[in-house]
């Protein structure tokens, strides 16, 4: 009896308040839609920024003619050093092959292999590449270089490039985080304001209900159910639009444009689930909570 009664009450109130109900539905739809577009965009942007940051490396050149034992020793030292995430050895020979492939004429002209054995060291965080370099290649105030291992000829961290990458990606990440926060706040405010407005127009009704002895939850349930319905409808509408956009716009481009589809990006089913949960949860909870103000009689 009770659930059926509440269901009927909420349906009645939606029928009797078509315009406010539609406004709530539309605002849920729009915010869900924007959120649904924004989540993948943020992810793609952050992923791209991370890709770029992964390119920050410290090159450790060895003196030419390093023996296998020396290489193994230096590798162990590098792996033990602070701020090191991974160490990749590029031997004289493999470096030569790769460079020759890129620029065959130049290397044909040189006629021999000028490259040293190199360790490509990836720092644990891009910001630490400077510290890592300083660790491996300490210059004393007197100008005497104190390389940590006698077999190391030079340590380079491509200072200018690294700085640019670190600062640019940081700006992008902060901007995206700010935008995301702003969007979430705006969505919550928009939805809660719409709910508040439609509740405000019915505050007298709530007052009367309280005066004839209705308990808070007796009044609240129909409102919560109404929020649930409108949230689900708005969310479903947004998801339908997103699905159409995905099939017609994103999927054809996914293979050619790397930015759009990343392996670690959120899957469409998960995205839908999150959006629906948000839409339904926010509107149902919003209706129930906003009502509290009018129940204090």
């Amino acid at each position: 009896m009770r659930p059926a009664f509440f269901l009927k009450e909420s349906l009645r109130s939606m029928r009797r308040n078509v315009v406010p109900s539609f406004a709530a539905l539309a605002s849920v739809l729009v915010t869900t839609l924007v959120l649904g577009v924004f989540i993948p965009v943020v992810q793609a942007t952050n992923g791209a920024a991370d890709d770029v940051r992964k390119r920050v490396l410290v090159d450790v050149d060895l003196l030419s003619g390093a023996s296998a034992a020396t290489v193994a020793r230096v590798r162990a030292e590098l792996q033990g050093a602070p701020h090191v995430k991974s160490v990749q050895f590029v031997s004289k020979q493999s470096g030569y092959e790769r460079q020759r492939k890129l620029n065959p004429q130049a290397f044909a002209l040189i006629g021999y292999n000028p490259l040293p054995d190199i360790f490509r060291v990836t720092p644990d965080r891009p910001e630490n590449s400077g510290a890592l370099r300083a660790e491996l290649d300490q210059s004393s105030p007197l100008g005497v270089r104190l390389v940590s291992d006698p077999a190391i000829a030079a340590v380079q961290n491509r200072q200018a490039q690294t700085d640019r990458i670190v600062s640019a990606t940081r700006v992008i990440k902060i901007t995206m985080a700010l935008l995301a926060a702003l969007l979430v706040i705006a969505s919550v405010l928009l939805v809660s304001n719409t709910i508040r407005l439609s509740l405000f127009s019915r505050r007298r009704e709530v007052e009367v209900m309280k005066l004839v002895g209705a308990t808070d939850w007796f009044i609240r349930w129909p409102f919560v159910l109404e929020g649930l319905f409108l949230g689900a409808l708005g969310g479903a509408g947004a998801v339908a639009l997103l699905a159409v956009a995905k099939v017609t716009l994103v999927d054809p481009l996914a293979n050619s444009v790397r930015l759009i589809s990343r392996p670690d990006m959120i899957g469409f089913p998960l995205l839908i689930a999150i959006l629906m949960a948000c839409a339904v949860g926010v509107s149902a909870a919003g209706s129930g909570i906003s009502l509290r103000r009018f129940l204090r009689i």
Partner: peptide
Amino acid sequence: IPFYRRNLGVVFQDFKLLPT
């Protein structure tokens, strides 16, 4: 309070009916 109010009948000057 709601349970207490069910033992009262209340009538107001402005009727306070549910308009819908």
